[in-house]
Nucleic acid binder design. Sequence first.
DNA 1: AATAAATGTAACTATTCGGTTACAAATATA
DNA 2: TATATTTGTAACCGAATAGTTACATTTATT
Lengths: 108, 108
Amino acid sequence: MRRDVFQAIADPVRREIIELLATETLSVNEVAEKFEISRPAISKHLKILNECGIIDFNQIGRERLCLIQPQKLIPAFLWIKQYNKLWEDRIDSFENYINQIQTKNDKK
Amino acid sequence: MRRDVFQAIADPVRREIIELLATETLSVNEVAEKFEISRPAISKHLKILNECGIIDFNQIGRERLCLIQPQKLIPAFLWIKQYNKLWEDRIDSFENYINQIQTKNDKK
DNA sequence: AATAAATGTAACTATTCGGTTACAAATATA
DNA sequence: TATATTTGTAACCGAATAGTTACATTTATT
């Protein structure tokens, strides 16, 4: 079973969980309440996020608080970031092309 | 069938295809030759990448050239990027903590 | 001590995923 | 025209995914 950050953020529910936990620390039940799906389903998503280190648990009595570990997103960030030169060049060359046409039209 | 950039880059083979096509445009067969798995398997991966716009095809005779469209990675990039303030603060506070300890030790 | 609350997990199901082999179709070459 | 090349796709398979309900366990409350 593959368990990496790319696979973790592939699921829209897990991305939403990350979004929630980025603003506040919540217990398992509090996370589950924010969704339509069952608590065990959320429990599984949290387990997957925990297995790749994106969240840690902090047991307080009978509650488990879910703490985000945002630095675990860095590898995925860097993988995508290596292509930003590529898409910026693409956009630049498109803008140059537009400017070129613009200049031609201005001359008319 | 969900088909978005997050799901596209979740698979390691597809990430490798993106890496290949970032440096050169290749035909379907040329892509397949770089992998151990069968050509139809690669064909499926290319189809998925195409369905979410990450690659375009350019038919030249009987060959189909695979052209990367790196700007399609931008939404995934931005989604992750919104957390970089979060992990930078985390790293900063860790560094501050280390510096604090260091300063204490220096005083001894 | 009895009950309520928070949570994990087992068992099950339907669907998707990632691979395979076999075959068909289109195009280039001899 | 016959053959080789490039490619897509159908049919199949096993494993993983994402959900469910039912139940067990631990901790807090009454």
